[in-house]
Design a protein around this nucleic acid. Structure first.
Length: 287
DNA sequence: AACGGATGCAACCGCATGTCC
DNA sequence: GGGACATGCGGTTGCATCCGT
């Protein structure tokens, strides 16, 4: 016997969500919390697959989502994490608060991939692409490659650089799990794991170094780079769901361009967190 | 102004994994 | 232990928008 389809294909609507559907879904989740996605469409009065509802909520409607392009710091973090974790977008997304795996995946495929290729870096292996202009068709001794650091065709990414910076993939996985499972205990968003993320911005990493050099950009940490902290936990724990007043809710439905700062998560940083951000900021400016 | 290709992103699909009975 | 089911994940697709001609 085959597995039952996740939903009745007949009468299930597909395609872009309407504002009305969004409203119904948000209303339902806010009232009942996230549970049993299969039952959500029926209970919420939606002609959608439960899977579709979950996706819509997690990728678009969740109040703790950040909107807009990834910041440079986030982008660098994605590159570094991808070097270690590969296409495990959910793991990567778990380290970028307010970002979804889908968003990161899309950003990778549309922006970062091209950027790396342009820089002569293989986006899959994070190794430099062999450039013919290096001529002679001879492998370049690693020591020589390092001397040429800064020329994009000889950017070297020693495996040890990115891997040993902090932890192995499995360690990362474990920390991810423990972090998410213990979120209710965390009164602060800056934990050991966050320090780990900071370490991943290893300034000795040639890829990152090159990016920093190549980018003639404004400061990386801006006021919009905010981490959902206390409110985020509440949202994940359905018990203490953050409530939205009518005004916020209507506004959300109108423009659907919201971020955590719109939900009162501003001013949620303690001194340690601010210090960490300043560290990142200083590090970037130093480049 | 119109057209067509390129691009970006939301959403879908199918498989994997976890959990419950 | 194994089947049924719910959920998560990553790859892919479809479509709206942008941009160059």
């Amino acid at each position: 016997m085959g597995r039952q389809p996740c939903c009745d294909k007949l009468g299930v609507k597909k395609g872009p969500w309407t504002a009305d559907e969004d409203k119904k879904l948000i209303n339902f989740i806010l009232t009942n919390g996230q549970c049993c996605w299969r039952a959500v469409p029926k209970l919420a009065g939606l002609r959608r697959c439960g899977k579709s509802c979950r996706l819509r909520w997690t990728n678009y409607l969740r109040p703790d989502l950040k909107r807009g392009l990834l910041s440079d710091a986030e982008e660098k973090m994605v590159i570094d994490l991808h070097a270690r974790l590969g296409n495990r977008w959910s793991k990567i997304a778990a380290r970028l608060p307010g970002r979804t795996d889908n968003e990161i995946k899309n950003h990778w495929n549309t922006h970062i991939k091209k950027k790396l290729l342009k820089m002569g870096i293989d986006p899959v292996t994070h190794e430099p692409l062999i450039k013919e202009e290096n001529s002679l068709d001879q492998p370049i001794p690693e020591s020589d490659q390092n001397k040429n650091n800064g020329h994009q065709q000889v950017v070297v990414v020693p495996e040890s650089t990115s891997v040993t910076a902090v932890a192995t993939s499995s360690e990362l996985d474990n920390s991810s799990t423990s972090s998410s499972s213990s979120s209710s205990e965390n009164s602060s968003c800056i934990t050991d794991e966050s320090k780990l993320i900071l370490d991943t911005l290893n300034e000795n990493d040639p890829v990152l170094s090159y990016l920093l050099e190549a980018n003639d950009t404004p400061p990386l940490i801006d006021s919009s780079w905010e981490l959902p902290v206390k409110g985020f936990d509440n949202i994940n724990n359905n018990n203490n769901m953050t409530s939205w007043d009518d005004e916020s809710f209507n506004w959300l439905l109108d423009c659907q361009d919201f971020g955590i700062h719109d939900f009162g998560f501003d001013n949620c940083f303690n001194d340690v967190e601010l210090e960490v951000f300043n560290t990142i900021y200083d590090m970037e400016n130093k480049q």
